[in-house]
């Protein structure tokens, strides 16, 4: 791994973000809207329901964590799409860079984009709704890492599709996370799902992450095994994602789609 080349690839995206105020605004805008929306919805639930004592905190924490996953994945996809939109694909793939260096650069830079969007929104939730995700405590770090790995994995799968099918796969990039959201049990416990769907849902790390978040916030119980399970499943998908990315790259080289890929 050549870290100087990884830095160069990251620098390209830092320059892109730094040079455009609307781009920064766009990164912050959506997470903030999410926080407002879910904050008010859950406040309404609190006033009209006694199921949870801390409905605002739970729903809003779930919204922030889900948005973290969403932003990580979208950031990864966006950085890749930027190369296609700017018709820079050929230049990128004839540069002396290893595929693992491209993956590493995108993975590391995605965190930068994700945090630009999410930190202001998470901070805003403290004075507005009296909710801080820091209340989850130390396990929050592991939950975020797990979400990040899974978000990047989804990014890897979508970018593999972009390499394989070209820019027409772009719509899938936007839809990918909405497809998984119902199975992720983000805002409700897994018991809500029909039994057969529960089996599928448990194969995703999201269920374990959000169940754990609720366990900590509602019952103040930390289930270390559940956290480990989530990390393990995420990591497994990540490895599969890398493998699929390499397969797509080799396939694209065989089909000749890397050359002149653009809008």
């Amino acid at each position: 791994m050549n870290w100087s080349k990884i830095f160069a690839l990251s620098l390209r995206h830092v320059y892109l973000i730094r040079g455009s105020f609307p781009r920064i605004l766009d990164l912050i805008y959506w997470p903030t809207i999410q926080i407002f929306l879910w904050g008010f919805i859950s406040k309404f639930f609190t006033l009209n329901s006694s199921i949870y004592e801390n409905t605002v905190g739970i729903i809003l924490s779930a919204a922030i964590l889900y948005d973290f996953l969403f932003r990580a994945s979208i950031s990864y996809n966006m950085m890749f799409l930027e190369e296609i939109w700017s018709r820079n694909f050929t230049n990128l793939f004839i540069a002396p860079i290893r595929i693992c260096e491209i993956i590493t650069a995108l993975t590391l830079t995605a965190i930068f984009r994700t945090l630009i969007g999410l930190v202001p929104a998470a901070l805003l939730a403290i004075p507005l709704f009296n909710v801080s995700i820091l209340e989850i405590g130390v396990p929050l770090v592991f939950l975020l890492i797990t979400l990040y790995i899974f978000g990047v994995t989804l990014g890897l799968l979508v970018t593999s599709g972009l390499i394989r099918f070209g820019p027409s796969f772009e719509n899938i990039a936007w839809a990918s996370l909405f497809f998984l959201a119902p199975l992720g049990c983000i805002y409700y416990p897994i018991e809500i799902l029909p039994e057969w769907l529960q089996i599928i849902a448990k194969l995703l790390p999201l269920v374990h992450i959000f169940e754990e978040m609720r366990s900590i916030l509602i019952y103040d119980i930390i289930n270390h095994f559940q956290i480990l399970k989530a990390i393990f499943i995420s990591f497994l998908y990540f490895v599969v994602g890398i493998f699929i990315f390499y397969l797509s790259y080799d396939g694209a080289k065989s089909r000749g789609t890397l050359i002149n890929m653009g809008e």
């Binding site: 018709r87 820079n88 653009g262």
Partner: peptide, 14 residues
């Protein structure tokens, strides 16, 4: 290295 008018550099970068 390679140069072609049909392959561009990132448009938003200077």
């Amino acid at each position: 290295n390679f140069s072609s008018p049909y392959v561009e550099l990132p448009k938003k970068l200077t």
